[in-house]
Design a protein around this nucleic acid. Structure first.
Lengths: 216, 216
DNA sequence: ATAATATCGATAAAAAAATATCGATTAAAT
DNA sequence: ATTTAATCGATATTTTTTTATCGATATTAT
């Protein structure tokens, strides 16, 4: 799906960025793959490989990489510089929390509006973002050329809404519902499935406890 | 970290469950690995392998698996039957959304209380969950023997709070902050990093658009 | 100036994960 | 009753991802 660079690599990139900002704040100017790896519980090998994928190849022996270069390179690689506009569909509890999430701006994402069917919130603003009726969704997407939709409707409406979004021209869906949505293969979907995450966490916990019991 | 079963497998399990409930609702009683794979855009091989990991091995040739057995088996495997209690730390926007998230109960997770430093919400309830001062966190964890913490504090307080949680006896941290937290290796951490997810989604979108431009 | 050492970056090796294959088996069709 | 077709479940293969190795090189120390 992704040409050369693996999704795991993309997943790690923002972590590097986060750590790099920390180091920068401490006054550091250079950092080696060893140190970056240590800060994030990774191996130097994977750090070096990831950075080379982002076309960052100006590390110096005995010194490491220039932190400023890394930050610029990764930000560019992740497209944080060119702002991407998005719509949020379903302004319920989770949707409202996301509308108020201030981190998105840093990542080059701007939510231009929320859409909902609830008349009591339509016409107003939530965290500064206008809430519009879903009837206006298609028009807005087409008119503004918006490519990304954040999906926070109830699970039972997820597929129908996804169909509508695709029809309106959306190219990427960030799916926060528990539903698995089917879309054409030229549409990107990212599932933010809490059940999945919780399952993994529980599994890790169970394993840890089992290990301990085995020791006693 | 996880003995035999991979985290990817755990990640897929709730997806199977979701799909199985759908099929059940439609009146189906049996399902083959081929059909389940198709519904979730996977391969039959991976479905069969995952199910065998969950000790589900009663599929019948020409028929498939009994849906009821699968649901029971996966639920048991994921520990959805034995309720796990959790505390939520940081009752801001995201924290409040999670306090109100009704899906957790299904997954065997019960948030017993939220903790915060904001006097204007302490003592009250949010979505039915009591909000307590962080000063009472340690006592509550110890007294109730709680093993899981949901971390939704501002990023700059994440590490300090994680340290406190670990000291109080927490064994698993579900980290919704953007900070990378360091914990002892016998503590499970699951990072719900929106930046990472967004990076992956953006990458997919970029790839799709590039592909299209190449065609024109 | 020379030697020692830390690090990069490319490549090789290892490990992990996903996918394919295939004999056995069961239900349905003939 | 026999044949056909679909599916499981075990195993083998392939692919992907991670980790290790190592020569080249730049900085620091002697």
């Amino acid at each position: 799906m992704n040409g050369e660079v693996s999704l795991q690599t993309f997943h790690r990139m923002p972590q590097y960025l986060k750590a790099l900002y920390e180091f920068k704040k401490e006054g550091r100017e250079n950092i080696s793959s060893v140190q970056l790896a240590e800060a994030l519980n990774m191996t130097p090998s994977i750090v070096k490989k990831d950075l080379s994928q982002a076309k960052i190849q100006d590390g110096k022996p005995k010194v490491g990489y220039a932190i400023g270069d890394l930050i610029a390179g990764i930000s560019e690689f992740l497209g944080y510089n060119n702002l991407k506009e998005a719509v949020l569909v379903g302004a319920g509890k989770l949707g409202q929390a996301l509308l108020g999430y201030e981190g998105f701006g840093e990542y080059g994402l701007n939510i231009v509006a929320g859409f909902d069917i609830d008349d009591s919130i339509i016409g107003g603003k939530i965290h500064g973002k206008p809430i519009l009726p879903t009837g206006k969704l298609q028009g807005a997407i087409e008119k503004l050329g918006i490519k990304i939709a954040i999906l926070t409707v109830p699970a039972e409406h997820a597929q129908a809404m996804a169909d509508l979004l695709v029809k309106a021209g959306i190219r990427a869906v960030w799916n926060f519902t528990t539903a698995h949505i089917q879309v054409p293969e030229n549409i990107a979907v990212r599932n933010e499935n809490m059940a999945s995450s919780l399952a993994v966490l529980s599994a890790q916990l169970q394993e840890i406890i089992k290990k301990e019991e085995a020791q006693n």
